[in-house]
Design a protein around this nucleic acid. Sequence first.
DNA 1: CCAAGTTCTGAATCCAGTTTCACTTCTTCC
DNA 2: GGAAGAAGTGAAACTGGATTCAGAACTTGG
Lengths: 209, 209
Amino acid sequence: MAYRATEATRRNAELKRRAFLRAARSLVAAHGFGGATVQAIAAESGASVGSVYSYFDGREDLLAEVFRSAAGHELGVVRDAAAGAGEGAVARLDALVRTFAGRALQGRQMAWSLLFEPVTPAVEAERLVYRSSYTGLLAEIVGDGVAEGVFAAQDVALAASAVLGAISEALIGGLRPGDRPAASAEADAAIVEGIRLFCFRALGTEETL
Amino acid sequence: MAYRATEATRRNAELKRRAFLRAARSLVAAHGFGGATVQAIAAESGASVGSVYSYFDGREDLLAEVFRSAAGHELGVVRDAAAGAGEGAVARLDALVRTFAGRALQGRQMAWSLLFEPVTPAVEAERLVYRSSYTGLLAEIVGDGVAEGVFAAQDVALAASAVLGAISEALIGGLRPGDRPAASAEADAAIVEGIRLFCFRALGTEETL
DNA sequence: CCAAGTTCTGAATCCAGTTTCACTTCTTCC
DNA sequence: GGAAGAAGTGAAACTGGATTCAGAACTTGG
């Protein structure tokens, strides 16, 4: 009995684990999930390929965690923005759309990866989870709006999906990486505004805030 | 000089080529592009693996052609339905949505493959082409509607994308293969109706046809 | 410093497919 | 029938990455 895991050891392991996650995340943000090969992740964090496997069950596992963390962060920001916008459904939807779309147009590559990039099944499963978190959030807002009478009566779940799809697809032109070298802030603002108006009309509200 | 390609020969070659395409298409319709391995295609058409390569440059080439043909057919049907619905933008949009969504809910697996299945770059490129055909078609209708005054004034291109996204995403719940064993005709009709109403509201029309 | 245990390393291996190609079979024409 | 060329075959080679694992390099407590 001459070696036993110590505090420092454990902390170190935790740091290394995080380093892998950080490296992978930065690779995804730069080149998408496809660019996050085990080789690249190891190189980026200055460790060996094999070492990745003592911290994660495999590439899928690691990337799923990266997805969860990145998507979870976005979801949190969007949720907070909506919650912080007050009581009214209109204000909450407004905040949600602005935040979601605005942020996507900032980190374009990451947004594309989270929303559209073809990924392996394990990661796709994570995506599904977040997708339904968003539709859940939207459904809540739409439902409240219908109850308040500011939105038209409608199938709430379907409307939530459709709104999410509309936002995503309208964004995609502006997202698809490698499309344009850079889109101006004004162009981005116009896209967000267009999406906003579309969504409000779709839900059947008069006041546009 | 003892052998030269004859009429029968050429016809035969053409038939075989089509047999490969048909086999691949049926595999895609049943199991998606992922299920259309070269092995499976060869087996399905009762030929050898190698033989595929004397008719196509490779798997990508073959699958791209399958995509083109399937998506082109759908697009044609949808376009015809819209054109056949008369002059008004409302009627044309109505026909487009009904046709697009209705048909997707019939061949679910194929629709999912054409719309969402992760595919190789060459096939994805085809998808992009058809996506923009649809948004083009939609943009035309929306533009006309705005001119007619039956739709609200808006960014036509953005609205077209958003409508396509709304339809697709609203469908996806009903499409994702393996989700449900079978959805009833009534449920399908309700989905189509919901999408229809959503789109009309989104474009800002009063009369819903 | 040593022994015992842990972590790290990266070349070798595996894997699930696609692609090739030497060989066989079939067609055509004389 | 036989020569010349086309088409078909399928086992073997290839591909590009993930995954493994035997040994090297560390850590710890004595």
